[in-house]
């Protein structure tokens, strides 16, 4: 265990020092929300909770060229830039750990591995708002998956080193570091109690794998299907959604072909459609059922935990209120205000 502290007034020079590793990115305000952006450390918003798009965008961008084809040869020149990402909360880091397990199993994804090697993750503690439910997914605290993790204790930050690379990066900012004392640990313990007491959203994911499985024929999927707009927002903002599509694009100017890889969504109609026009999931309800079974059942059996880290992005993003919270509550016959639950369906 390597634990340090820095004074609050040293945070900005500390982050500036880390720029020696790579470009500095962090949460900045955009309209009513937050985004991860390349910015000066003084522009980072220390109160930011969930960003619109999660940090998965640093590990596999929403669109990039996976292969090029020119003069009868394939070429893979994807080289992500070196970056320091500041401000990742525990839910975000847990999601990246799921991402990591997923992209390194069986056929490790070379693009992911390159981005992973190029990215220094600097976590940051947070105080939940009314949409956070990471306590229910067991992801409110994180032990691995970061290089450095900062806990905001008011006049100081605890700096937890999580990797050898994190340890190396501290050489850039050595002059700001002090050893953490017993008093700092006490302060941390009371901060954590305060944090744990501030969750407002009540939800219990217990029993989720089997209740979703048993509810395969429940009318609630029909209700959801009736309300769903198939817009794909849920999958874009979900930090554990991994699906992508590939498409060949011709670049006239350079006379080369690019095989573009981009985020894709299982709620899109074409997702399960094969050549010839047969669609394995024609109905929106079928596609939503896939999303929820994959998140809450599939990942459980493959990885031992659900692929939800309680970040609340689906809660604030879905225009019709279909999200992990309302779906879990509906499956467990609990009260929810979500509009879609009131949809009329034939077999209800």
């Amino acid at each position: 265990m390597r634990l340090f502290k820095i004074k609050r007034e040293n945070l900005i020079p500390f982050l500036r020092g880390l720029e020696g590793f790579g470009e500095l990115w962090g949460p900045v305000k955009k309209g009513e929300s937050f985004v991860y952006a390349r910015a000066k450390p003084e522009d980072f918003d220390m109160t930011a909770l969930r960003t619109i798009i999660p940090a998965k965008k640093f590990f596999l961008p929403s669109k990039f060229t996976s292969l090029k084809f020119k003069d009868n040869r394939w070429e893979d020149d994807y080289r992500p830039r070196k970056r320091v990402i500041f401000g990742l909360h525990p839910c975000e880091i847990h999601a990246l750990n799921i991402y990591h397990k997923f992209y390194t199993r069986l056929y490790p994804d070379p693009y992911y591995l390159r981005a992973k090697a190029a990215t220094l993750v600097v976590g940051l503690s947070c105080i939940p708002d009314e949409h956070c439910f990471c306590y229910a997914t067991g992801t409110s605290t994180v032990n691995e998956g970061f290089d450095l993790f900062l806990t905001d204790l008011g006049d100081r930050f605890l700096v937890w080193v999580g990797s050898p690379r994190g340890e190396d990066s501290l050489k850039l900012v050595e002059k700001f570091l002090q050893e953490a004392s017993q008093e700092d640990i006490h302060k941390y313990v009371s901060w954590r109690k305060k944090r744990d007491a501030s969750f407002r959203l009540k939800i219990d994911l217990d029993g989720m794998p089997e209740i979703v499985s048993f509810s395969y024929d429940s009318p609630i999927w029909e209700k959801m299907g009736k309300a769903c707009l198939s817009c794909g927002t849920c999958t874009m903002v979900c930090p554990t959604c991994t699906c992508f599509d590939l498409e060949d694009e011709y670049d006239l100017r350079r006379d080369e072909m690019k095989r573009e890889r981009f985020w894709y969504s299982c709620v899109f109609r074409e997702y399960s459609m094969v050549a010839g026009g047969h669609n394995f999931r024609e109905a929106r309800s079928e596609r939503l059922k896939l999303w929820y079974t994959h998140k809450l059942v599939g990942f459980m059996s493959e990885y031992g935990s659900p692929a939800c880290t309680g970040c609340g992005r689906c809660v604030v993003s879905c225009p019709v209120g279909i999200n992990v919270v309302s779906v879990v509550k509906a499956l467990k016959n609990e009260e929810t205000a979500a509009l879609w639950v009131k949809m009329e369906v034939e077999n209800a």
Binding site: Y107, Y264, V274
Partner: peptide, 23 residues
């Protein structure tokens, strides 16, 4: 048969339940 783009259990388009048909 399913739609597949990667063949390596990643792109997700062949998923059924928690199985990737391609792997």
């Amino acid at each position: 048969e399913r739609k597949m783009k990667c063949g390596m259990g990643k792109c997700g388009q062949c998923v059924v339940g928690h199985k990737y048909v391609c792997v």
